[in-house]
Amino acid sequence: MDLSERIDAFLDALDEWLRGLYHGMISHPAYEKIEKEAEDLEDAFLLACFPDAFGIPSPVSYYTAEILPYIEDEFKAWERRLWDRNTMLERKGQQYHF
């Protein structure tokens, strides 16, 4: 292996490491954070659509029932998040990376 090849290999490894570091330290936490915020908003949307699930009568649940066939994934995730969530503080706290 001559010098130029060794330099290329070194640069490739460095590039991979830097990418990994950037992904791990910056972009991944950032997109995770955004996604969690999106999930929170989605929870608020579902709660606004189906407050009857918590015993709160809603004048629009007759109409929002129409979207039930299209929100299988959301509904599943919503239920799971409701089970998993202990406190709102914990949930929001997870979204901060110091």
Partner: peptide, 26 residues
């Protein structure tokens, strides 16, 4: 539409919600 779109295991779960919405006074 529910049975067309949604997997069998979720149908039951969602059905509950659906029936609730149709029994409200509104």
């Amino acid at each position: 539409r529910l049975s067309d779109q949604v997997s069998a295991s979720m149908v039951n779960e969602i059905n509950k919600q659906l029936e609730m919405a149709h029994q409200t006074p509104g």
